[in-house]
Design a protein around this nucleic acid. Structure first.
Lengths: 354, 354
DNA sequence: CCCGGTTACTTGATCGCTATACTAACTCTC
DNA sequence: GAGAGTTAGTATAGCGATCAAGTAACCGGG
């Protein structure tokens, strides 16, 4: 079927009448355009009750909807919040954790009368594409989520600071008080590692994808701290950062760990997908989890509780974090007082795999 | 920390200089604003080479970025595509399948110079909130994805048709040639069921969440067709639609199926999450998959290949479908010829669970 | 050497809305 | 009953771009 074909085209282009403007409403109600504007913007106290009703009636009849482009141009705001995502391979949305964060942000953004504008870029593309919502006056503020890790992360952060517009960093805290929403990954990992140590494990491995960004580094740090506190020197060969966070990478890393002369008795994965791969590798070697090998994940994906054995992992309040991020940006935009850094606790879920 | 605090405020509000306008560029280059506009919009053949360079230079120095609000107002387009999502509980983005579709759409949208605007609504909220990107001139067109099922789906579809703006339906095909992107769920389910029948199964169950939308109904239809073709009358008690698509719902439905006097030897789940629950229920009863019970899923989530046993399921090209949806809408907006209905094949992945 | 055509621009109106300033009538107070 | 304050509006000027319609210079042909 051809979009250009007349029948389809006609249907999609509709009745062809242009949408009503404020002027149309004003004419119909017999008032000036400004009076309509006042009503639309909630300044109803500026007009008599009868006028208000007449205008409201006219708006209803004409099905008037304000043109946000025009409003934005004049009022220098768009009522749009940009969610700016950088990531190694544009897989961001395929991760339910990230999707949930975005859903939380979207909820608040919607409630407060804004729209959610998504802009993504691949890590390394340091043109200004990522910031176009801010640069091109399409959004009033932005939530910046840099997942994936490389040196150039700093470039992005410097850039958004320079832009001089309201923003909040998602998932990472800086030493310089930039608005941020973070979860206490460090103590989650610390608690997890401590749990393993209490179970008697001494050879505890930590695996993650090749690129580790701050959120992941914190998990790693929590792991190291727990071991050190227990007087265990975290062995270099037990800390692996390889691959792209696929389960298959988890399997590969687990295999090489288990092939060591002195293999670990527990493996902490920096996320649940990697843990899934560890399960597979362990099964392949006929090992029982948790008896032969303890495994922990991170993030508490849907499947975690349903694996056999169920996966011990850490749950992050991502939805709430998304909400908080949106709240911070909008508060800034509207000059409302509020916390600019929100730190969330995490929940360690001890299940059967460790 | 207080956002209103002077230092933070100052940082976030930046240097305070307003962004350069076309007029600024024009002044600096010693040309008229229209000449700048011509260059910005790729009509470089309208000016002398020297002028072009002077203007380009001025744009670079000032770091000029067009104000999309202003362009949108005058040119009656925003270069923004709305992704409108309706769903039972705003969980849409938490589903990696949906996230992947959106990522695919986002990729094309970005490539073609547009932005991606997400608007979601809960099924049943039939105000115009969902369509606000279109109604308020914030987007030039929309991708409409109605997941979750209820009678009022029709209302949404009628509404978007009425709006008379370019749109495409995601995941469902209508008898009336509306632009759409769909996957061949019916034949995927048919192939899956046929596979089970060939393996000797006769008592084959089908389970899904309470609300079944067209995509799910197609899976159900494929199941029924396969059974009928094999001369098996699909028993009513083997077709369950309960709960909210959580693994726990899958476990519950599987338990009640397995408690039947004549229990099924195979269960087809309408998605992988439900299948995960079936695995759990089967384990709870000491049953071996696939020997005591064959299980199939749908969607091929990340975890499917890594379960024990690995899950037989159907993979949909969701990323490509997202790309196709974006392509269709943008083609319509730009009056480019192209297919308005794109149908994608699915891939049945026979693994170990069935 | 004048005409039409091209090239290289400029000018002015306008998109739909909001901000600012203004008017006119009415009410209250001393 | 004059000045101040309140109420209920209107009038005008843009926001930053695009569109349609100019203009001015040059250029080749008869």
């Amino acid at each position: 079927m051809n979009v250009q074909g007349k029948p389809e085209k006609a249907r999609n282009n509709g009745p062809g009448r242009r949408p009503p403007t404020m002027q149309d409403v004003a004419d119909r109600a017999g008032v000036s355009i400004q009076t309509v504007s006042n009503l639309v913007n909630g300044r109803e106290h500026l007009m008599a009750k009868a006028t208000r009703e007449r205008v409201a009636q006219a708006m209803a009849v004409l099905e008037y909807r304000p043109n946000m482009r025009a409003r934005g141009l004049r009022a220098a705001r768009t009522n749009e919040i940009g969610f700016l995502v950088v990531d190694d391979e544009a897989k961001f949305l395929a991760d339910p954790t990230n999707g949930t964060a975005m859903a939380g942000a979207g909820e608040i953004i919607g409630q407060r009368g804004y729209g959610l504008l998504i802009q993504s870029a691949k890590l390394g593309d340091i043109d200004d594409g990522l910031f176009s919502p801010l640069l091109e006056s399409r959004a009033d503020g932005g939530i910046l989520y840099l997942s994936g890790g490389r040196e150039d992360r700093e470039v992005y952060i410097r850039r958004i600071v320079e832009l001089g517009r309201p923003f909040v960093l998602f998932g990472e805290e800086r030493d310089d008080d930039l608005p941020a929403v973070i979860a206490d990954n460090e103590s989650g990992a610390h608690e997890l590692a401590t749990h393993l140590i209490e179970k008697g494990h001494r050879r505890i491995a930590f695996i993650a994808g090749r690129a580790a960004w701050p959120m992941i580094e914190q998990r790693h740090a929590g792991y190291r701290r727990a071991l050190q506190e227990a007087g265990i020197e975290p062995a270099q060969e037990l800390q692996l950062f390889r691959g792209r966070w696929d389960p298959i990478d988890g399997a590969t890393m687990a295999s090489s760990l288990l092939a060591l002369r002195d293999p670990p008795t527990a493996i902490m994965a920096a996320n649940d997908l990697l843990a899934l791969g560890i399960f597979q590798a362990a099964r392949g070697r006929g090992m029982q989890i948790p008896d032969d090998l303890a495994v922990t994940g991170f993030n508490d994906f849907d499947f975690a509780a349903f694996l056999e054995p169920s996966l011990t992992t850490v749950s992050l309040p991502v939805y709430e974090m998304g909400e908080a991020a949106a709240t911070i940006v909008i508060d800034q935009i509207e000059s409302v007082d509020g916390e600019a850094i929100r730190r969330f606790p995490v929940e360690v879920l001890i299940r059967d795999s460790a």
